[in-house]
Structure formats: C-alpha cells, structure tokens
Write a protein that binds this DNA or RNA. Structure first.
Lengths: 340, 340
DNA sequence: TTGTATGCGTTATCAT
DNA sequence: ATGATAACGCATACAA
C-alpha cells in the first residue's frame, strides 16, 4: 500500500510477513524454518504474487538453469524434431532453452557460442558444422552427430549399424544389385558412417553395390544423370537404392517416377532419418529411423549430469527399420503410421 | 597471473588496464572516454578475454535482451518455420530467444508464461491455445493467430482473404461445385476466418459449395465418409476442395487416391499454409501461402517497439496463392519450387 | 532457529 | 573526462 512496487522483491515479502530477509530466502528454497514463519511467509508471497528474480539468483549462484541449443534450422523435419524433444527434456527438468538457429550465414556458430556463453548458460548442446568451433572449457558441451574434440561427448544414432541394416534389409527383400546415394557435408561426422555400414552390409550379404556421392555444392541433378546412365532398355540396373537421408530419398523417388520406374516393384528405396510427412503423417519412404527422443534425452542427461568423472566420448543409439511404402515388404512389423 | 580467475570481471579488466571500474563500463558500453584510456581498456579486454556478464547486467538494468516464444511444437512444419524465422528476426537484433514448446500436456502454457516472466524476459511471443492465459501487464506480449485481449497485438495472415482467394482460384480454374473441409480448434482464432472468406468468395463467384467441419476429437475418417457420401457412379460431386490446412489436404489427397479419383483432373484441391515437403522441397499441394517470414518480423518489431502509444490490435498480412500440382493450372506465375 | 551483513558483476550518480 | 560508491535482488556465512 505504501509503495506501488511493480515487481515485489524478497525484501517486500519480508516486510509484509514481518520476518527477516534470510527467512524468506529459506522458505523460498525449501530450507528448514519455523512452521509459523513459513506460513506467514508463504501467505505474503501469495499476497504479493512474488516470484524470485532469476537474474539476481543467477548472478549470485552462477547457475542459470538455462541451456543453449545450436542447430542449423527448425524447418527441416529432423532438426525440428530434435529441437522439440530437447526442449521437452529440458523443460521436464525445469531448465530453460535458448535456441540459436545457425544457418542464416555460415560462420555464425562461433558468434552464437560466444553470445550464449556470455549469457552464462549452464551448458550448450550443438549440432554444428564449424569444424573448429571453440567453446569455453568451463561450459559443459554436448555435440550431436559430430565429434567436437576430447572431453566433449558426442551423441548420435548408430549410423554404421543403420547403413548396415539398410543393406541387409534390401538383401532380405530380394535385391541383387543396389546403389548408395549420398550428398552432404564433407567434414567428418557420424552420419558419414552410413556409407561404411552400408558397404559392410553389402559385402556380408554378397550384394553387388555402387556408390554415387556428390559433394555440397553440386546439384541434385547429378543423381538423375547417375540413374539414367544405369538404365538399360527402360529398366534400371539396380533393384535397390539406399539414400543417405529421407530428404534425398524424396527427391530420388520423384526422379524414378519421372523415369517411369515403379517403386517398389522395379526398384526398392530405403532412406534414413524416419521423417514423417508434415510431422505426423506417414513416412516419406521406408527408412532407418533415428531415435530422436532418445538422442534428445541422452544429450540432456549427459549435459546436466554432475560429478561424472569421465563422460563418454561417443554415444551411439540404436536405429530401427520402418516400412514406408517404398520397399516390397508388407506391413508386418513396422506399419507406416498415418494420422488416426 | 596473481590469481586464476576463471571468468574475468570488469574489476579484473580495470586492474589490468590500470583504470577505474567506471571507465571500463563506459568503454564496454561505447560511452565517450579518453582515447588513451579506451585503447588500454580494449587491450585488457582482449588480453583477459573479458565478456560482460549478462546476468549482472540484466539485474542492474532490468533488461535482458531475451524474448520467450511459446508454440505448440517444432515438429509440424508451419510451427517449425515460424520458430525459425522468429529466431532469426530476434538474433538479428541481438536478442536471445527462449523456446517453450507447450503441447506435451495441455494447460502447461500458463506455467511457461510464469516461468519466463520470472526469468525476466523482455517480452513474449505466443501462439497459444489457452483461452484465458494470463500474462503480466508489465511484460510486452504479442499473440499469433489469436486475439489475447485488449492491449495485446495479434499478428496473423489475412485468413479471410486467403479463404476468399481459394474460392476465387477454384472458380477461375473452372470449378462449379466445391467443398470446404476443416478440422481444428473450436476456440476463436484468426484461422477460423478462412471459412468465412471462402464462403464469401463462393457467393461472389456464384460457386455452389458445401462445408464439412469436424471438431477436435473426431477422427479424420469423417472426411472419408463425407466424400464417399458425395460420390455418384464413381465420380465425386465436387470438382474442387478447399482444405483448411496443407496437412489436411495431404490426408484428403490420400483419400481421393484411394477412391480412384484423379487430382486435378477429377477434383482440384487447394490447401492453406504453404508447406513444403521436408522443409524445402516442393509444395504439398496448391495452396494459400502464409507469409511466415513477414509474420515473424512483424511480431518481433511490434514486441520490441518502444514508445508506441498504441499498438495495433490486429495485423493481417497478405497471403498468396501458389501452384502445387493439385490444381488444373499450369506453371505460370507461381511455379512449384523444388530443390535446385 | 532467526536475523544481519556481505558480495555476486554491473551501471549510474556523484564528486573530483 | 575520470574515479569512487551505491544499488539492483538474492543467497549465505555468521552472529545472535
């Protein structure tokens, strides 16, 4: 009544309750305090609608309950899904999440790291492409899909096993001659292991295979040319294709359609990621599904885990095959989900 | 050298440079200071790798350069796109963004509002569904797609015009009898105006139309039944469909295919949102495109605009039609973009 | 068990 | 123009 304080502080609460400042702090933090005091303080808190100022708290404790997530964007489904699940894992633990989309211009990643470090985040989770990103040693850091140096855990799907699984599936489904199609970043990261896993699977199943790998700048049309060059009398030499992502598979499916090839009758296609159309409809294609939720949870767990003498340098989470209409397989096992 | 301070403070910089604390502050904040002092301070900053502690700054200034974004999720493409562009608009202005995905359980929206208010954000942008969400009067707030009471600007696409445009397009493309299919939240929001706009367009073009509107809990199969009930000898009574979202259009396209109907030959379909497959491939369908980037920019501008005596209660941004393969139209004008 | 006093790192007000 | 000092809101060590 005496003053019209817009946002009440602990001092106001103390005055209102007629107790000392420290007592209020203890009540707020759940420390033992006399019953009668506790009640009075809680009443005052309710009455004034008091909330602790997390900036004052953060300054004092040097802990902010805030984590930054660095990711290229939230428009591509895999990233969007990752962001979503990391956000939920964090919120579950009462942690706030600072989002930094990095792909507007290259080289911005370091800038964001600096920015969030200055903001005193308690940790950083990053899916980044800057090979020599420097994050302060004092800031806990977990990297997704890319090893970021010693001491920094990397969380990823088991990409090697996924590639192998793709080869095995194609073999099981009757393929004799397959191809691996890849595009993407040329720097060392976990998804690159899909290729090695696929090769390994092909070899162990005696599957004859070829590779078409284009690098970042090159146009997707290279794949058109590759496929056309492997056509004989309107038939494709391959009866199975493994695309490094569902996104690429989507493109390739369009090319195949244009070439008059039927999927899966003429050629079977397996992608990677486990993307669903529009977020929750059916799969884009038969695919190796990344365990996005588990990746999210693992990142958060590793990041926030205290007193861990040594953190695992690389955590690979199991992938699974899912039928998505572009393989011969019927619906046993993993049926494609659609809304409802 | 004397002490191994993990993170240097202004005091350390002052000591290093041999100047007073206040001088350092001025240099950091770009206030006028003697040239020789400035140089010495800047050198010390570089040497110690000093960064201002934004928590101390936030406490002092009661400004945090942080905005919270409340959104259902980042897995559905429209939301993902919105998050992305808002993030970019904010980062451009050196603002940080706190992300809160709200759809894990209902009713959590209020909890997040409290949480971020306590975190002293400078503002909140929300795409929310809680009809009686209470945000502190002191916290600037901008709502997307839903009016959130007096004094709170609402930013949305021009949904009415979009609905009308859809009807006009269908009429232009030769449709005689069309239907509007809708599902979604029953509470008052801007997207609901798509229906009124569509009706208006139909009336002005003398298009005969019907509506099929199902509410939140009901299964999508209601649309199957609706369409089947309007079949005559294997032909659909409608030659045009307007779906309230691209997501619904995607579902409906599958139903139509199952029913043996060709799109766009037998029936043309227009959706709403302007979603692209996997984020950057072609459109899901011919569609009314929401200007997501402009919505994002408008939200941020309105939110951060100071000294605005009165903020606009409702801002409607122009939509556009885009060809996406499910209408008769050729590729003139808005061709469907695909990678490359 | 409760109250008091100090300091977290910064900005801003005031003398100098 | 520069330097000392108080205050932002909170937690905590210490005194009562």
């Amino acid at each position: 009544m005496n003053r019209t304080n817009p946002t009440p502080t602990m001092k106001d609460v103390a005055a209102e309750a007629g107790v000392a400042l420290g007592t209020v702090s203890k009540v707020v933090n759940g420390l033992p305090v006399g019953e009668s005091y506790r009640v009075r303080v809680e009443e005052a808190i309710k009455k004034l609608n008091y909330q602790v100022n997390s900036y004052a708290q953060g300054l004092k404790l040097n802990k902010t309950r805030t984590v930054a997530l660095l990711i290229p964007n939230t428009t591509e489904p895999f990233y969007g899904s990752l962001v979503h699940h990391i956000n939920i894992s964090l919120l579950k633990r009462q942690y706030r999440m600072l989002l930094c989309c990095t792909d507007l211009h290259g080289g911005l990643e370091q800038e964001y790291v600096n920015m969030v470090q200055q903001n005193k985040v308690d940790g950083i989770i990053g899916l980044t492409y800057d090979p020599n990103l420097k994050v302060d040693a004092g800031t806990p850091y977990v990297s997704i899909d890319r090893s970021a140096g010693p001491g920094v855990p990397c969380v990823a799907s088991d990409n090697f096993a996924g590639g192998q699984l793709a080869a095995e599936k194609l073999a099981d489904l009757g393929c004799r001659k397959v191809a691996f199609l890849r595009t993407g970043s040329s720097l060392a990261n976990e998804p690159n292991k899909r290729k090695a896993g696929f090769e390994n699977g092909c070899l162990s199943r005696k599957l004859s295979y070829e590779m078409k790998i284009i690098s970042d700048g090159e146009p997707y049309e290279e794949f058109d040319r590759f496929l056309i060059s492997h056509m004989r009398d309107g038939k494709l030499e391959f009866d199975g294709l493994f695309c490094v992502t569902d996104s690429l598979a989507y493109y390739v499916l369009k090319v195949l359609r244009r070439l008059g090839l039927r999927v899966p009758e003429d050629v079977q296609v397996i992608g990677f990621d486990g993307i669903r159309h529009l977020g929750f409809h059916d799969y884009v294609c038969s695919t190796i599904v990344q365990p996005v939720e588990e990746i999210a949870e693992m990142c958060v767990t590793l990041l926030l885990q205290e007193n861990m003498p040594v953190k695992p340098p690389l955590v690979c989470l199991p992938v699974a095959y899912a039928y998505g209409g572009t393989t011969a397989e019927g619906r046993e096992g993993d049926a494609p989900l659609s809304r409802q």
